[in-house]
Design a protein around this nucleic acid. Structure first.
Length: 543
RNA sequence: GCGCCUGUAGCUCAAUUGGAUAGAGCGUUGGAUUCCGGUUCCAAAGGCUGGGGGUUCGAUUCCCUUCAGGCGUACCA
């Protein structure tokens, strides 16, 4: 049992005794230490209910609580009627011991055990290298997947793509024109085609591999080679970021298996489609939307919407307990009607969570840099990693709430300075490793003779309290899909460690104290390493 | 016009999902090292949480309104 469940049980007893049922007990962790380690606002909640002053209710509750020193050391009433609980040191030491024994396993929980999650992200069509915008999404998606794995989920990382249609024709033509240019033909390169240098590189590779006799009218040949090249690069970029996709889902397969047709038919049966101006429309106005949407253009080509519906139906059918879509803010309007169709056809959309992240604003020397694949004045994800490294790239993308615009100051990111929090955290890890090595040199070894009760300084106790909260934090970050909580937590952990370090010497003349402190910093190292692992960031022994 | 997101210290951002005196980093100013890694630590200054109403014991958080910025508002994806 944890202190938290102990306190909740005590409060429940009070509620049962007074036959109160419609109140949920919420324990908070006060920011200010003088308010204890856990605070209950239950008396304030009950005030209206019982028509009594909160403070008087708090007094009644206070009287009913037994102080079990295995969990708590004291209870206080404060303010208008908060009840504050203080953890006992016995409990802290026991949890610290558990942390050290579990080591790299510490932080795993089981609330998602046996459940399967699918998370779809990046899903960029193969028309160019991944940009910084994709980078934010890639890192967010992978880290959310890692967090879900921490709480027991089995996670499928999925990439959905479309290698047909207008965009691919433009890609094919872009390469074709560059190829013609290379073999000495005079060409006009249209403004709305892909301008990037990578197109010329691909054209050159076509020339090297296939010579000068390629059919220069065959757009689809060039498109196919372009797709292969670009996908190879995308996969390399993703690998470099530190993960891989389990599934690349080709939109085309939805046509081949008849799933697209079946969506059209089913929507038709429900009376949700109509033909107008040669196109087939989805009558979204029947479902409460402002305007109807085109499903199949008058040219006979479907819009993105139709395969998206079929794809999401497939996701539900595949039996996942949790389905996550990550989109950039520019796709904000594209999913409500897709989900509405899925729902209208009788599939459970409750399991689908759509996460929207805001854009990355790239600034260089105070000037905004506009990103566009078509125009090619973008900075690619690879270029960014070349400049600042994988660790900094990942951390920067994760440290902000995804709803907030991310201001990526390229100049600042390029300077690998101490302004960067990732170095601060890694430095703490390296410093601990260094101390531990020195301890070994001095012949100080911890076996089973470590007396944690020697840890009594406020800096030590604060550190322990913060460390043992790690599993709770992971759980919250995972369930809310908020990786930035973990970056903040690790920064704070490093900070508490550095504060401890300046006040408490680890290797002293007192062998039992030294061993206790060595255990403590080992616990810090475990937390930093486990946390960084979840973020996909290295935890170096030396820097 | 309408929809979604955002607005918190000079700058970049937090705030335990409605809690107690709104916190960090950078920057500014001033300090700390005979000793385990100074890429560290301590302190000071800096705020009407964009403005105005409301809901209640209590609001940065929820509701209304207004202002500012971003993204959408396609027979592009």
């Amino acid at each position: 049992m944890t202190t938290e469940t102990f306190i909740i049980n005590e409060l429940k007893k009070f509620l049962e005794k007074n036959e109160i049922s419609d109140i949920s007990i919420i324990l908070q962790k006060p920011k200010d230490k003088k308010f204890g380690d856990y605070a209950a606002n239950i008396a304030l909640q009950l005030a209206r209910h019982l028509h009594k002053k909160p403070f008087d209710i708090a007094k009644d509750i206070f009287a009913s609580i037994t102080v079990d020193t295995r969990y708590i050391s004291k209870v206080e009433i404060a303010g208008a009627g908060f009840i504050n609980f203080f953890s006992s040191n016995d409990y802290l030491f026991q949890q610290l011991d558990l942390l050290i024994k579990q080591g790299e396993k510490f932080g795993y929980t089981e609330s998602g055990k046996g459940k399967r999650a699918q998370i779809e992200f990046v899903s960029a069509n193969p028309t160019g290298p991944l940009t910084i915008g994709h980078g934010r999404q890639a890192v967010l998606g992978d880290t959310i997947a890692r967090l879900l794995e921490m709480i027991g989920y089995n996670v499928t990382r999925e990439y959905y793509f479309n290698n047909a249609g207008r965009q691919m024709r433009i890609l094919g033509d872009s390469i074709r024109f560059r190829y013609m240019e290379l073999i000495g033909e005079k060409i006009y390169f249209p403004d709305d085609h892909y301008q990037g240098k990578y197109i010329i590189d691909i054209a050159r590779s076509v020339l090297e591999k296939h010579g000068k006799d390629v059919d220069i009218e065959d757009t689809s040949f060039f498109a196919k080679i372009g797709e292969e090249n670009i996908f190879d690069d995308i996969k390399k970029t993703v690998k470099r970021l530190g993960f891989f996709f389990d599934v690349f889902y080709n939109e085309k397969s939805l046509y081949e298996t008849g799933k697209i047709d079946s969506v059209v038919k089913e929507l038709g049966k429900k009376g949700l489609t109509k033909e107008e101006d040669g196109a087939l429309w989805f009558i979204t106005t029947k479902l409460g939307f402002e305007q109807d949407r085109v499903l199949i253009k008058s040219t006979g080509e479907p819009t993105y919407r139709l395969p998206d519906m079929a794809y999401h139906i497939e996701k539900v059918k595949r039996g996942f307990d949790l389905i996550i879509d990550i989109f950039g803010a520019d796709h904000i309007a594209t999913f409500p009607d897709v989900l509405a169709a899925v729902k209208a056809l009788g599939y459970d959309t409750e399991k689908i969570k759509v996460l929207i992240h805001q854009f990355v604003t790239l600034t260089e020397k105070g000037e905004k840099v506009k990103m566009s694949t078509r125009k090619a004045n973008f900075v690619t994800l690879d270029e960014l990693m070349d400049e600042v490294g994988v660790d900094v790239t990942r951390f920067f993308f994760l440290m902000r709430h995804m709803n907030a615009h991310l201001n990526f100051d390229l100049a600042l990111a390029k300077t690998q300075s101490d302004e960067n929090p990732v170095f601060y955290i890694q430095y703490a890890h390296a410093r601990i490793c260094s101390i531990s090595e020195l301890a070994v040199e001095k012949g100080i070894e911890i076996k089973d003779d470590c007396d944690l009760t020697r840890l009594t300084m406020p800096e030590e106790i604060n550190l322990i309290k913060y460390l043992i909260n790690f599993p709770t934090l992971i759980e919250a970050a995972a369930l809310n899909f908020e990786p930035h909580r973990l970056t903040n937590y690790l920064f704070e952990t490093a900070s508490l460690f550095h504060k401890f370090y300046t006040v408490c010497r680890v290797l002293t003349d007192d062998p039992t104290l030294s061993k206790a402190r060595l255990s403590l910093i080992n616990a810090v190292r475990i937390i930093l390493a486990n946390g960084l692992r979840i973020l996909g960031i290295s935890a170096p022994d030396h820097m």
